[in-house]
Design a protein around this nucleic acid. Structure first.
Lengths: 222, 222
DNA sequence: TCCGATAAAATTGTCGGACAATAATGCCGG
DNA sequence: CCGGCATTATTGTCCGACAATTTTATCGGA
């Protein structure tokens, strides 16, 4: 997870270099969703052996970033509308769990951090800053939950739907709605009301789901 | 996911053969938890190349069955008490979600199947049969939920804690308790009460958690 | 004897080549 | 225009090799 965005050929192993390169390509849009990735391509362009490329492919497949079909190689994963919906069901349950687990463990500093991200998101000028604040706010709960496996799962879900994230959030109304939902969760957390916090987080995930589902068919796989 | 229990060397690819062999070894206890697996060992014993063994290792690592450390290879995964507890938190949330999603989709046949597994579990003579019925009963919900990703996640969690399963359930009292918990979930499902069914499933998972946590330290990793 | 440092062995990480198996592509006759 | 066949491209698997790293064995000194 979370490598430095560029220059990955420093202290990392060869396969991690490849993993970083592909991740970068997918996130930057250079590798389009559904696009097929050919081993020989990467061996040449990156100057590494086939072993490393194949292992990187497999690792990214396990992470949900690539899709693998026997005898046909891997391609940048693209989900159907139904699969995205399925993932949002799971995400709702896991994020709610993260909030419930995190709540009794949030100290004064963590609560302040929550509030800070909220304020920063509201004050953000551009979409990149807004998106970054949101991600950081979301990550605070899994981090505080003292459950690394849960955090990894939530991060994995985020990977799977990342390619959709930067098609939305360009909507001014939605930023306001998102801020409001985040405020509702934060308020419940500050009040120490686990039930309400869970409910608010589920509602927030559902809001995000509805937004994503409103995208045109062209954003999804067949 | 879900391979045929035996005779895996027939129509499958080489790496699937290796995967099946290792899975069998772990499940049968031939490969003890924490035991290190050496590539050269399997290349010789199974008569396959290093590529296949390495890929099988990676695939099983992604599945949670093996643990991987760079430059030190893989070993049969063994979890600490805390990690098991973390997984049970996740499992509770996901199984509850599976029940909620499955409930409106269970037709007459599925409900009958639920009841049948329940009855079979109560009538089971030996532990193996009892355990099998329980697994089948549990699997009905993810299957009916029409959410393959959720089913895969729950199956993965099951893999991670499988090595503990056959250390318990040797307790006569616990079989009764398990049956009672399963009956409670089934009853709520038959009544169409999603809230109660979710609660009952959470309670069941927690019962299983308590049982596992009562095992001695020797069953867990450091 | 016990301990730490060094040397040897074992194991993994990566490369390159090779070939069979399978899928994708193009050609050609109908 | 279409179906069947040959060609090509790509993946699946094996092999051998060597560097990097870890583990084990050896040995000298306190």
């Amino acid at each position: 997870m979370t490598e430095s965005p560029l220059s990955a050929a420093e202290n990392a192993s060869t396969v991690e270099t490849v993993v970083a390169a592909i991740t970068e390509g997918v996130r930057s849009g250079l590798l389009a969703p559904g696009q097929r990735l050919v081993e020989a391509d990467f061996t040449r362009r990156l100057g590494v052996g086939r072993s490393s490329v194949r292992e990187a492919f497999r690792r990214l497949t396990a992470d949900g970033l690539l899709a693998f079909v026997p005898h046909r190689g891997v391609s940048v994963r693209q989900l159907t509308r139904g699969e995205v919906d399925n993932l949002f069901d799971i995400r709702g349950a896991l994020e709610a769990l993260a909030v419930r687990l995190a709540l009794p463990r949030l100290d004064r500093a963590a609560l302040a951090a929550l509030q800070a991200r909220l304020d920063a998101a509201e004050a953000a000028g551009d979409m990149a800053a807004f998106s970054a604040c949101n991600r950081e706010w979301h990550a605070l709960f899994p981090a505080a939950a003292a459950n690394p496996q849960l955090a990894a799962m939530i991060a994995g879900l985020g990977n799977s739907i990342y390619w959709l994230q930067f098609r939305v959030l360009v909507d001014r109304d939605r930023t306001f709605a998102t801020n409001a939902e985040h405020r509702a969760v934060t308020a419940a957390v500050l009040a120490g009301d686990a039930e309400a916090a869970e409910r608010a987080m589920r509602a927030h995930v559902d809001g995000s789901r509805r937004l994503i589902q409103s995208l045109p068919d062209s954003c999804f796989a067949a």
